[in-house]
Design a binder for these strands. Structure first.
Lengths: 69, 69
DNA sequence: CAATAAAGTGCAGTAAGTTGCACATTTCTC
DNA sequence: GAGAAATGTGCAACTTACTGCACTTTATTG
């Protein structure tokens, strides 16, 4: 899962919840500009920022071992 | 999953693979100091850095919807 | 299609992550 | 338990992310 996929997941989820980037940025407490960059995959956010956004959207992330099955 | 848990996952995996922090930092191409901070949960790395470390360890991460089931 | 809202961009200042160094502490190994 | 290896810390420089602003482009709505 790369930055673009992450951005898309976030964007999809935000749209599903029917909120704007502006609204989400205010809910999360990060700059609108940062959120835009995250969603477009152009940014390189810190874990804290990513966590905040995911959390606000009812999302979370897990670490997994890459398996061959 | 918070930064401490992430750090622990990484540390556990690294030890499982029997490599030192020094070695892993060289494999990944990041500073030893950064890796130490990531493993201890003190750092706040960018996605790029986290991805590099996870990838080198044969790990990956997924975004999931938080469910009530 | 005109008006408005939403999304996206370049830029520059501010805040924060990254790194190596020198050193301290903990953990192995004999 | 001495010596060595691995892990961890404070610090300062260097680099990069974060943010708001002014503006452009792309939906959306009447």
């Amino acid at each position: 899962m790369n930055k673009f996929e992450i951005g898309n997941e976030i964007k999809q989820r935000r749209k599903f919840l029917k909120i704007t980037q502006q609204e989400l940025s205010e809910i999360v407490g990060i700059g609108l500009r940062s959120l835009i960059d995250i969603e477009s995959g152009k940014g390189n956010p810190t874990i804290d920022q990513l966590q905040k956004v995911l959390s606000a959207l009812g999302l979370t992330f897990e670490i997994k071992v890459i398996s061959n099955g």
